[in-house]
Amino acid sequence: MRTIHASRITQAVSELYTESSYVIGDDVRAAIDAARETEPSPAGRSTLDQISENYRIAAAERVAICQDTGMAVLFAEVGQDVHIEGPAFEEAVQQGVRDAYLNGYLRKSIVADPLFGRVNTKDNTPAVIHARIVPGDRIRLTAVAKGFGSENMSALRMLTPAEGVQGVKRFLLETVEKAGPNPCPPVIIGMGIGGSFESAAMMAKRATALPLDHSNPNPQYKALEDGLLRAVNDLGIGPGGTGGVTTALKVHIIQAPTHIAGLPVAINICCHAARHATVTI
């Protein structure tokens, strides 16, 4: 049994959201710069230049990469041999989010009720928390700050098993085509295939936060990821949606066992301001 004080969780969460709002991951920066070299569209190249320069300014001045600093979504893997001392785990996380957004000059974008009044909570809480209990005596936290320009273009469909790989491809291309310029391409696409209605959506969100050099360990799924990426980029939407060959940087798939009658497919679109970070306590 290992004891971790809740204040350490609060501090870790606060640092994750602050840093990831200012500093883009090296993988994303490198992918944008590589795309700049191969993008044939002049307007597309100009967009990629501005995106790259924006990363540089945000990191140097320690300001938000994008003004939509997102809804905080936190994935936590809590070792079952950890004892958390002090405030409740979820309250410790919410306090970390509050600290980051209040002290870090990050925009507060959360309203308390989705339908009536829509009054801003003024500290960007509550965060969405997905916690799992795992073996071990550590806590692993992955913070995602999700902008809603791209979140709004995401989709979930319950396909029939007969629709198979072709159905998955058609659903993805329809979703990306319909989104067009709205989610700030180039995007990173997270797909959850299988599981149940809600777990497919969670796998898709988790997939958007995988490193860009990570591929699915299953060769069939890796081939599917690569094929889907090519198909998405053949749509011609391009950087900023004004035409080009760089519509997506990566398609990540997480798959899971599912029911004999079903084929759930969730698509979570993440913009080039792909803000996420992980820490192990």
Binding site: T47, Q50, N54, A64, G149, G240, C271
Partner: peptide, 8 residues
Amino acid sequence: VGGAAALI
């Protein structure tokens, strides 16, 4: 450019 918010 969407997301180029610090530059803008």
